[in-house]
Amino acid sequence: MSELPFARDHGLVLCHICSKACQADSPTCPRCDSAVHARKPHSISRTWAFLVAALIFYIPANTLPVMYTQMFGSASENTILSGVIEFWKGGSWDIALLIFFASVVVPCLKFFALGLLLVTCQRRSRWAMRERSRLFRFIELIGYWSMLDVLVVALVAALVQFRSLSTVEPRLGILFFGVVVVLTMFAAMSFDPRLIWDAEVTDD
């Protein structure tokens, strides 16, 4: 596929904001005035930083309770996983699966996929470039659905407020979980998918 020209070889740089092809020597886009870079600055180290921070916060997000429920006199605290198990045992396996996907599978997939992309880019691997490109677009697309659990907890806590009879309160775990989602979004945004293809340029 080396017959397709790279913009960099023709002295052109893409403006990420307005999609204009800019001259490589200009620091800002002549059309929308935002900064242009041939590659996102410090992409690999920034993505690693966000990813490692997200991984660290993922531990308290899963071990600390996200919700305190006091209903009909009995009180309980749920973590994300125990909430999923409760749904499963209560017979709503579909909702259990939905929350499991949004809160466990999607973040873990993001950790794994971004880690894989970072390592392969650092090694200038030419393995499965098209597929890795597609993988990045996929995790960019699904990433923000992890926010689901935060919103569910907020809604339930806002609704179930019957003073002494029953209350639901959010707990610290949801803060860590929300931070994980935001950090993984920043990680995906700071990764530059063009790095995947740079291996092809330098090897030629």
Partner: peptide, 9 residues
């Protein structure tokens, strides 16, 4: 047009 994912022109 430049591809934002692989820098192809």
């Amino acid at each position: 047009i430049i591809c934002e994912h692989c820098d192809t022109l």
